[in-house]
Simulated scan of single mutants.
Amino acid sequence: MSSILAVTFPFFALVLCGYLAAHRRYLPESAIPGLNGFVLFFALPCMLFRFGSSMPFAQLIDPWLAAIYAVCALVIVGGTIAATRHQVVLKDAAFGALVAAFPNTGFMGVPLLVAVLGQAAAGPVITTILVDLVLTSSLCIAVAESHAPHGPGPSPLARALRGAFSNPLPWAIGLGAAKAASGIVFPGPVDQVIKMLADAASPVALFTIGAVLWRAGQHTHTRTPVAHYLPVSLVKLFVHPLLVLGLGFGARAAGADVPLFGLTVLALAAALPSASNVSMLAERHGADNGRVARIIMASTVLSFLTFSGFASLTRPLLAQ
């Protein structure tokens, strides 16, 4: 456990630094969206592009891992909406389900899991990113907007999918895979620019998580009872990873070719805290951002210990 904490501590310390910098106004609130944009549109795509271009497509996307993670995401979304629908309106239940099923794999998970398990972990983590961006987020946003009046244009699901495909991360992964398949070699200066941006992704993304969490708290205008947000955080941190492990081992027992290493990576990705950017998404769609922000904050604070605990418990699986 102590060796895992030695690896995870710097990651969570950078999140705390971002939170304190925003709280103390060393980082102006008006600068936080720009910092978030730098990570989302420049640094993180370059990091994912480099991972995508450094491994064969079969290692990048494993069909069994994608299927297991997708089924678990659907179960978490459906179960969370059903369990919380009596507490909140459908839109808020849908965004609560999104933070219950959508871990912070982009900003935190890729660098953290690579640090814990090695570069081979990048492939399974990238699989989770694609599932969450295309399936989980699109489904939850479509459910959230299903009762909103809309004209003869695209359906809520079509609009949500269009938003998912406007995200640069899937395209960065795809372009990286295409580069690996084609054998194209970039000129040295171009490759160096991509490398510099990719190297900036991890520290800036973690710092940004903290700043975004502080900003979400400043834009909270409702008082959310603990019973309306803490159980959802616990679903994210405990139910989600245990469900991934349970379904994965069930599939292996049934004869499916599920790699044990990839399944471990999937479970640890599911054990990550909720994606911090969902707070901005909830604010944009008019959901109860206060509840979403509290779910994300609770899962982030608790995950310092819970994630390290899961990482310690799953390490013996890698020796099998």
Rank of each mutant, 00 (worst) to 15 (best):
T264F: 09
F12T: 01
L90V: 05
A311K: 02
L5W: 15
T222Q: 12
L27V: 12
A311W: 03
A270F: 06
M108K: 06
A94K: 01
F102V: 04
L213A: 00
I76Q: 05
R162W: 15
A13H: 02
G163V: 09
G183T: 10
A158Q: 14
V193Y: 11
V143A: 07
A43D: 15
T136Y: 03
C140Y: 00
T300R: 01
L266R: 04
L130E: 09
P273R: 10
V116H: 05
T222H: 14
A256S: 13
I295C: 07
R315W: 15
G286Y: 02
F9C: 09
N277W: 06
A144K: 00
Y229I: 00
H150V: 07
I209K: 01
W214S: 01
S182H: 09
F49K: 02
W214C: 01
V193M: 07
G118H: 13
E283H: 09
Q87L: 08
M47D: 04
E145Q: 08
A319C: 08
T314N: 13
V39H: 10
D92C: 01
V110K: 03
N36R: 09
V204Q: 06
R50T: 14
A82N: 07
A227S: 14
M55R: 14
M297Y: 05
A6H: 11
S274P: 00
L169P: 07
G246S: 13
P111A: 13
G96C: 00
I61C: 04
A73P: 04
M280P: 01
G96Y: 08
T8Y: 07
L213E: 00
L242P: 03
A6T: 14
A211R: 02
T222D: 13
M47V: 07
P124R: 12
S2G: 07
G163E: 14
E145N: 13
F310C: 10
G210N: 12
T84M: 04
A205S: 15
D92K: 00
T136D: 09
S299Q: 01
P170M: 15
Y229D: 03
L133S: 04
F11K: 09
F42K: 08
Y19G: 02
A311R: 03
L234E: 04
K91Y: 02
A205I: 02
L113C: 12
